[in-house]
């Protein structure tokens, strides 16, 4: 029993890191995803090609590799040493993890948002136009609220994947939950810490599902 409590407390601090990584990634990647979607649909061929290339790289290479590149890249490519950079208790490896995850997830979110935006009928834009709404008003009042409802199931999928993907941050030695679980597991020569970590992820994703279901239900007031 004592052993379990010790496992839980040790995993707890790692779990906080995982959660922080999770929320920060969402906070940055969702707005960035909207920009990606907008850029991908841009009539300017330079912008849309660049964004298309960005998406293909982010989707076509391993996230772990991207994390390594964000962390080591500045030093090896540009000779900029950020590894001693510290923002309070947060050092560059944590920042690199958030940047890497956000850039990667923005590409996926971008494509999801694009699918939602392009599924909107032309009539919605036309009705808004003749009523005198500006482009910004049309986007934020008419289009985006409907897009949110349409993309919610796909976004939920992505969020659930993100919960599990946070474990990849171990590639750049971020002390997130999975890293801790592996360490305890090795020290105690036991699989129980790994099992407990699994339960953590599962429960957390259960919560994600409950929250997302609630939001979906809330948006069900219209078809």
């Amino acid at each position: 029993m004592d052993k379990l409590i010790s496992i839980l407390t040790q995993l707890g601090s790692g779990f906080l890191t995982s959660i922080a990584l999770f929320f920060l990634t969402l906070i940055f990647s969702i707005p960035l995803g909207l920009l990606v979607a907008k850029g991908r649909m841009s009539k300017n061929i330079v912008i849309s090609s660049l964004v298309r290339f960005y998406i293909s790289v982010m989707r076509g290479t391993p996230l772990m590799l991207q994390l390594l590149l964000v962390y080591f890249g500045p030093y090896y490519l540009f000779n900029i040493n950020l590894r001693n950079l510290k923002l309070g208790p947060i050092d560059y490896r944590n920042i690199a993890a958030v940047i890497g995850f956000s850039l990667n997830y923005a590409a996926y979110f971008g494509e999801i948002f694009r699918s939602g935006i392009q599924s909107m009928s032309k009539g919605q834009y036309e009705a808004a136009t003749v009523l005198g709404f500006s482009k910004t008003q049309t986007y934020f009042r008419i289009i985006l609220p409907q897009v949110v409802k349409r993309v919610l199931p796909a976004v939920t999928n992505e969020i659930i994947t993100l919960v599990k993907d946070t474990s990849l941050a171990q590639a750049i030695s971020v002390i997130e939950m999975f890293t801790v679980a592996k360490q305890i597991s090795a020290a105690q020569a036991s699989v129980i810490p790994l099992f407990v970590a699994g339960v953590f992820y599962y429960v957390f994703n259960g919560l994600v599902e409950i929250v997302m279901n609630r939001i979906e239900k809330k948006m069900n007031y219209y078809q």
Binding site: G123, A127, A128, V130, L131, G132, F133, Q137, Y222
Partner: peptide, 30 residues
Amino acid sequence: RSKFGLVFQGFNLFPHFSVRRNITEALIHV
């Protein structure tokens, strides 16, 4: 655009707005 109104074949109402908001949204925000 404020001088004319247009009624569409396919209605093109805003599905996420109530009837009231469909009618008042442009009045208030435009």
